[in-house]
Measured scan of single mutants.
Amino acid sequence: MTEYKLVVVGAGGVGKSALTIQLIQNHFVDEYDPTIEDSYRKQVVIDGETCLLDILDTAGQEEYSAMRDQYMRTGEGFLCVFAINNTKSFEDIHHYREQIKRVKDSEDVPMVLVGNKCDLPSRTVDTKQAQDLARSYGIPFIETSAKTRQGVDDAFYTLVREIRKHKEKMSKDGKKKKKKSKTKCVIM
Protein backbone atom coordinates (compact mmCIF):
# COMPACT_ATOMS: atom_id res chain seq x y z
CA MET A 1 0.00 0.00 0.00
CA THR A 2 1.38 3.38 -1.01
CA GLU A 3 1.77 5.99 1.72
CA TYR A 4 1.43 9.69 0.95
CA LYS A 5 2.85 12.38 3.24
CA LEU A 6 0.53 15.37 3.00
CA VAL A 7 1.12 18.66 4.78
CA VAL A 8 -1.63 21.23 5.43
CA VAL A 9 -0.27 24.79 5.54
CA GLY A 10 -1.81 28.24 5.84
CA ALA A 11 -2.32 31.16 8.19
CA GLY A 12 -3.80 30.75 11.67
CA GLY A 13 -7.57 30.36 11.82
CA VAL A 14 -8.20 29.39 8.17
CA GLY A 15 -9.55 25.94 9.10
CA LYS A 16 -6.61 23.61 8.49
CA SER A 17 -7.45 21.44 11.51
CA ALA A 18 -11.19 21.55 10.78
CA LEU A 19 -10.56 20.30 7.21
CA THR A 20 -8.25 17.53 8.41
CA ILE A 21 -10.58 16.37 11.20
CA GLN A 22 -13.54 16.46 8.81
CA LEU A 23 -11.63 14.14 6.44
CA ILE A 24 -10.39 11.79 9.18
CA GLN A 25 -13.31 11.70 11.63
CA ASN A 26 -16.26 13.01 9.60
CA HIS A 27 -17.16 15.76 12.01
CA PHE A 28 -16.81 19.53 12.23
CA VAL A 29 -14.87 21.16 15.04
CA ASP A 30 -16.14 24.70 15.44
CA GLU A 31 -14.12 25.88 18.45
CA TYR A 32 -10.75 27.40 17.58
CA ASP A 33 -7.82 25.80 19.35
CA PRO A 34 -4.53 26.86 17.73
CA THR A 35 -2.51 23.85 16.58
CA ILE A 36 1.18 23.40 17.23
CA GLU A 37 1.43 20.24 15.15
CA ASP A 38 -0.86 17.22 14.81
CA SER A 39 -0.46 14.10 12.72
CA TYR A 40 -3.29 11.94 11.37
CA ARG A 41 -3.41 8.74 9.33
CA LYS A 42 -6.25 7.39 7.24
CA GLN A 43 -6.56 4.55 4.75
CA VAL A 44 -8.58 5.50 1.67
CA VAL A 45 -9.18 4.27 -1.86
CA ILE A 46 -8.36 6.83 -4.56
CA ASP A 47 -8.93 5.86 -8.20
CA GLY A 48 -9.05 2.18 -7.25
CA GLU A 49 -5.76 2.27 -5.32
CA THR A 50 -5.79 1.70 -1.56
CA CYS A 51 -3.43 4.16 0.05
CA LEU A 52 -2.48 5.49 3.44
CA LEU A 53 -2.65 9.23 3.95
CA ASP A 54 -0.20 10.53 6.53
CA ILE A 55 -1.43 14.07 7.15
CA LEU A 56 0.48 16.70 9.08
CA ASP A 57 -1.71 19.53 10.34
CA THR A 58 0.59 22.46 11.01
CA ALA A 59 0.68 25.64 13.08
CA GLY A 60 -0.43 28.77 11.26
CA GLN A 61 0.71 31.10 14.02
CA GLU A 62 3.86 33.03 13.22
CA GLU A 63 5.54 32.06 16.52
CA TYR A 64 5.83 28.48 15.22
CA SER A 65 7.30 29.42 11.85
CA ALA A 66 10.72 27.99 12.80
CA MET A 67 9.18 24.50 12.71
CA ARG A 68 8.05 24.90 9.08
CA ASP A 69 11.30 23.98 7.34
CA GLN A 70 11.36 20.62 9.11
CA TYR A 71 7.87 19.48 8.09
CA MET A 72 8.26 20.94 4.61
CA ARG A 73 11.33 18.74 4.09
CA THR A 74 9.36 15.55 4.83
CA GLY A 75 6.12 16.41 3.00
CA GLU A 76 5.45 15.04 -0.49
CA GLY A 77 2.52 17.35 -1.21
CA PHE A 78 0.99 20.46 0.30
CA LEU A 79 -2.55 21.77 0.76
CA CYS A 80 -2.13 25.56 0.81
CA VAL A 81 -5.21 26.76 2.68
CA PHE A 82 -6.68 30.24 2.96
CA ALA A 83 -10.09 31.39 4.22
CA ILE A 84 -12.35 33.00 1.61
CA ASN A 85 -13.34 35.60 4.23
CA ASN A 86 -9.74 36.57 5.07
CA THR A 87 -7.79 38.44 2.38
CA LYS A 88 -4.56 38.42 4.43
CA SER A 89 -4.62 34.60 4.57
CA PHE A 90 -4.94 34.57 0.76
CA GLU A 91 -1.99 36.96 0.39
CA ASP A 92 0.06 34.76 2.77
CA ILE A 93 -0.21 31.80 0.36
CA HIS A 94 2.60 33.27 -1.75
CA HIS A 95 4.97 33.16 1.24
CA TYR A 96 4.08 29.55 2.08
CA ARG A 97 4.59 28.50 -1.53
CA GLU A 98 7.96 30.26 -1.78
CA GLN A 99 9.12 28.68 1.48
CA ILE A 100 8.06 25.20 0.29
CA LYS A 101 9.92 25.66 -3.01
CA ARG A 102 13.03 26.90 -1.17
CA VAL A 103 13.05 24.05 1.37
CA LYS A 104 12.34 21.40 -1.29
CA ASP A 105 14.86 23.10 -3.62
CA SER A 106 12.42 22.66 -6.50
CA GLU A 107 10.04 24.71 -8.62
CA ASP A 108 7.89 21.62 -9.12
CA VAL A 109 6.30 20.55 -5.82
CA PRO A 110 2.81 18.96 -5.70
CA MET A 111 0.38 21.52 -4.23
CA VAL A 112 -3.32 22.30 -4.19
CA LEU A 113 -4.70 25.76 -3.42
CA VAL A 114 -7.68 25.47 -1.06
CA GLY A 115 -10.20 28.24 -0.36
CA ASN A 116 -11.90 27.17 2.86
CA LYS A 117 -15.07 28.44 4.58
CA CYS A 118 -17.02 28.71 1.30
CA ASP A 119 -20.23 28.23 3.34
CA LEU A 120 -19.81 31.75 4.78
CA PRO A 121 -21.61 34.68 3.11
CA SER A 122 -18.88 37.20 4.02
CA ARG A 123 -16.49 36.46 1.14
CA THR A 124 -13.55 38.86 0.64
CA VAL A 125 -11.54 36.68 -1.77
CA ASP A 126 -13.25 36.25 -5.12
CA THR A 127 -13.28 32.75 -6.65
CA LYS A 128 -11.77 34.16 -9.85
CA GLN A 129 -8.86 35.70 -7.90
CA ALA A 130 -8.06 32.30 -6.40
CA GLN A 131 -8.46 30.51 -9.75
CA ASP A 132 -6.11 33.02 -11.37
CA LEU A 133 -3.51 32.54 -8.64
CA ALA A 134 -3.71 28.74 -8.91
CA ARG A 135 -3.42 28.96 -12.70
CA SER A 136 -0.33 31.18 -12.41
CA TYR A 137 1.21 28.57 -10.06
CA GLY A 138 0.13 25.69 -12.32
CA ILE A 139 -1.76 23.97 -9.49
CA PRO A 140 -5.41 22.96 -8.91
CA PHE A 141 -7.79 25.16 -6.89
CA ILE A 142 -10.64 23.76 -4.80
CA GLU A 143 -13.15 25.57 -2.62
CA THR A 144 -14.07 23.76 0.57
CA SER A 145 -16.21 24.02 3.65
CA ALA A 146 -15.03 22.02 6.64
CA LYS A 147 -18.46 22.75 8.15
CA THR A 148 -20.60 21.27 5.35
CA ARG A 149 -17.84 18.89 4.11
CA GLN A 150 -18.07 20.39 0.60
CA GLY A 151 -14.88 19.71 -1.35
CA VAL A 152 -13.01 18.16 1.60
CA ASP A 153 -12.37 14.73 0.06
CA ASP A 154 -11.76 16.37 -3.31
CA ALA A 155 -9.00 18.62 -1.90
CA PHE A 156 -7.03 15.80 -0.28
CA TYR A 157 -7.62 13.32 -3.12
CA THR A 158 -6.60 15.89 -5.74
CA LEU A 159 -3.35 16.39 -3.84
CA VAL A 160 -2.69 12.63 -3.92
CA ARG A 161 -3.28 12.68 -7.68
CA GLU A 162 -0.83 15.58 -8.02
CA ILE A 163 1.79 13.60 -6.07
CA ARG A 164 1.21 10.57 -8.32
CA LYS A 165 1.65 12.72 -11.45
CA HIS A 166 4.82 14.20 -9.99
CA LYS A 167 6.28 10.77 -9.14
CA GLU A 168 5.42 9.49 -12.61
CA LYS A 169 7.09 12.49 -14.22
CA MET A 170 10.18 12.10 -12.03
CA SER A 171 10.53 8.41 -12.86
CA LYS A 172 10.20 9.16 -16.60
CA ASP A 173 12.85 11.86 -16.28
CA GLY A 174 15.04 9.41 -14.37
CA LYS A 175 14.68 6.77 -17.11
CA LYS A 176 15.61 9.32 -19.78
CA LYS A 177 18.75 10.24 -17.85
CA LYS A 178 19.67 6.58 -17.37
CA LYS A 179 19.25 5.89 -21.10
CA LYS A 180 21.51 8.81 -21.94
CA SER A 181 24.19 7.67 -19.52
CA LYS A 182 24.40 4.23 -21.18
CA THR A 183 25.98 5.73 -24.30
CA LYS A 184 29.62 4.72 -24.36
CA CYS A 185 32.59 6.34 -25.93
CA VAL A 186 35.21 4.09 -27.53
CA ILE A 187 38.68 5.48 -28.12
CA MET A 188 40.86 3.55 -30.60
Rank of each mutant, 00 (worst) to 15 (best):
T2Q: 11
T2L: 07
T2N: 12
E3A: 12
E3N: 08
Y4E: 05
Y4V: 13
Y4R: 15
K5V: 03
K5H: 03
K5T: 05
L6D: 00
L6M: 12
L6P: 04
L6S: 01
V7C: 07
V7F: 02
V7H: 07
V7Q: 05
V8L: 05
V8E: 01
V8Q: 02
V8N: 01
V8K: 01
V9E: 03
V9I: 13
V9C: 06
G10F: 00
G10N: 00
G10C: 06
G10V: 00
G10A: 15
G10P: 01
A11D: 12
A11P: 10
A11F: 11
G12I: 03
G12V: 03
G12R: 05
G12Y: 04
G12N: 07
G12P: 10
G12K: 05
G13R: 05
G13P: 03
G13V: 04
V14M: 12
V14E: 12
V14Q: 13
V14Y: 09
G15N: 00
G15L: 00
K16I: 15
S17H: 01
A18F: 00
A18Q: 04
A18T: 14
L19D: 08
L19F: 14
T20Q: 06
I21R: 13
I21M: 15
I21V: 10
Q22F: 05
Q22D: 15
Q22R: 14
L23W: 10
L23P: 03
L23A: 14
L23T: 14
L23F: 11
I24W: 03
Q25W: 03
N26V: 03
H27A: 14
H27T: 11
F28R: 03
F28S: 04
F28K: 02
F28W: 11
V29F: 11
V29T: 08
V29K: 04
D30Q: 08
D30I: 06
D30Y: 07
D30P: 11
D30M: 09
E31T: 10
E31C: 13
E31W: 07
Y32L: 07
D33F: 04
D33A: 04
D33V: 03
D33T: 02
D33G: 14
D33K: 01
D33M: 04
P34E: 14
P34M: 15
T35W: 15
T35I: 15
I36H: 00
I36M: 12
I36T: 02
I36G: 01
E37M: 14
E37I: 05
E37Y: 03
E37T: 04
E37W: 04
D38G: 02
D38P: 00
D38F: 02
S39C: 13
S39F: 05
S39H: 07
S39M: 05
Y40K: 03
Y40P: 01
R41E: 01
R41T: 02
R41L: 01
R41S: 02
R41F: 01
R41P: 00
R41W: 01
K42T: 07
Q43H: 12
Q43E: 12
Q43P: 10
Q43A: 10
Q43L: 08
Q43V: 11
V44F: 07
V45M: 12
I46P: 13
I46K: 07
I46L: 08
I46R: 08
I46S: 10
D47L: 02
D47Y: 03
G48K: 09
G48V: 05
G48R: 08
G48E: 11
G48D: 09
E49K: 11
E49S: 10
T50H: 10
T50W: 07
T50M: 08
T50I: 08
T50F: 05
C51K: 07
C51G: 07
C51I: 13
L52N: 07
L52H: 09
L53Y: 10
L53A: 05
L53F: 12
D54I: 01
D54R: 03
D54Q: 05
I55E: 02
I55P: 02
I55T: 15
I55Q: 11
I55D: 01
I55R: 01
L56G: 13
L56H: 13
L56F: 11
L56P: 02
D57T: 01
D57K: 00
D57F: 00
D57C: 02
D57V: 04
T58Y: 08
T58V: 13
T58A: 12
T58S: 14
A59K: 03
A59S: 09
G60N: 15
G60M: 15
G60H: 15
Q61K: 03
Q61H: 08
Q61C: 06
E63H: 06
Y64W: 10
Y64L: 06
Y64P: 13
